[in-house]
């Protein structure tokens, strides 16, 4: 399928190497009372050692669900993987029985969860929860595990870590809980780290420290990082390449510099234009009008069409495949080239 192969072109310098992670044509649906919600509809990407892939996209576009499917922690039922593969160093994880798969979790692929509070157990002290990782996975003694846990809390800049290791999740601020989650995710030294909004609750100075910590880990251990975030500033700072998701599909994929310089998809363009800018203070922010499609009833044609300022007749009839626009850049828009060149006017309404 051209649609999916387009998404897995390796970086030239990495060509020939087995990627760390290859997601191919991944599909996930939720069978709910209101119908079948198609949350992930053929997502493909590759991640190499030491690489940072940023995943951007509308809230509800399937970023977290994709990550959950990769991790094997999908809420099943109602969620089901209905197609595709997730290969870690060539091994298809989706083909493994549960118990074998579990061995990859935390060690090979770890995840920082978006909802820090609900991912932490409210009835155990946070230090204990981190230490538990070392006891269970590495068979450390209680004392060693506790000391490692405190070290890790210090590494993620929790003040007075030793004194506060016995505190419960609700006693920490939002940003502190987020850092506890980060500590748990990096505890076992994973090869791939999926960071789902890892710094949203952090002030920018702590955010800078955490991103630095992740960058160091990445360099030292050649870790691959999948960064799911809404923060276009952070993405500009750290990403190698970007995937932009909408309605469960990848709409655009490109190296970081290219996307910011000239987006090749109207949705990406809309996103970049929504960033608040100093010179626009006092004015209404530019926003993409309308709502994302209902996933139980995705319209024919381009998923973005009802909100797209450039939509033409063809957009209603044909769903654009993710295709290469210029070498290394992919976009799922019938007018990708025109959007890229800035050579298209909004359609008459």
């Amino acid at each position: 399928m051209a649609t999916t192969e387009a998404g897995i072109a390796p970086r030239p310098d990495q060509a020939g190497l087995t990627p760390l992670l290859e997601v191919e044509d991944l599909r996930v649906e939720f069978r709910t009372r209101d119908g079948v919600a198609k949350a992930v509809n053929g997502v493909s990407y590759t991640l190499h050692e030491g690489e940072t892939l940023a995943v951007l996209g509308e809230s509800g576009s399937g970023k977290s669900v994709t990550a959950q499917a990769i991790m094997g922690i999908l809420d099943t039922p109602p969620g089901f993987v209905t197609g595709g593969s997730v290969r870690f160093r060539g091994q298809d994880l989706l083909a493994l029985p549960d118990d074998e798969r579990r061995a990859y979790r935390g060690r090979s692929i770890a995840m920082i969860f978006q909802d820090a509070l609900s991912a932490l157990n409210p009835v155990f002290p946070v230090g204990w929860q981190i230490a538990e990782m070392y006891r269970v996975h590495e068979g450390m003694s209680k004392k060693d595990a506790k000391n490692r846990a405190i070290e890790l809390m210090e590494q993620v800049h929790i003040p007075a870590a030793r004194e506060r290791a016995g505190d419960y999740p609700h006693q920490f601020s939002g940003g502190m809980r987020q850092r506890i989650m980060i500590a748990m995710a990096i505890a076992l030294d994973p090869d791939v780290l999926i960071a789902d909004e890892p710094t949203t609750a952090l002030d920018v100075t702590v955010q800078a420290q955490i991103m630095q910590l992740l960058a160091d880990l990445q360099r030292e251990r050649n870790m691959g990082l999948i960064l799911i975030t809404h923060d276009l500033g952070v993405v500009a700072d750290v990403a190698d390449k970007i995937e932009v998701m909408y309605s469960g599909r990848i709409m655009e994929q490109a190296p970081v510099h290219d996307i910011y310089a000239s987006p090749a998809h109207p949705y990406t363009k809309g996103l970049l234009e929504s960033i608040p800018r100093v010179d626009l203070k006092g004015q209404e922010l530019s926003a993409i009008k309308g709502l994302p499609p209902n996933l139980t009833n995705i319209p024919a044609g381009c998923e973005f069409r009802p909100r797209c300022p450039y939509a033409r007749d063809i957009c209603k009839e044909q769903r654009p495949a993710l295709a290469e626009v210029v070498p290394g850049r992919f976009s799922a828009c019938h007018f990708a080239q025109e959007v890229l060149d800035g050579d298209i006017e909004p359609a008459q309404q």
Binding site: V204, G233, A236, V256, H257
Partner: peptide
């Protein structure tokens, strides 16, 4: 320090901004 750490949504200025790095540990509010 806070203002200097705001990430800029423009990869072409990556690493070029002068950022004030706060050294020292975050003190405990206790």
């Amino acid at each position: 320090a806070l203002l200097s750490a705001v990430p800029v949504p423009d990869p072409s200025v990556r690493g070029q901004r002068q950022q004030i790095i706060l050294s020292g540990d975050v003190p405990s509010p206790a």
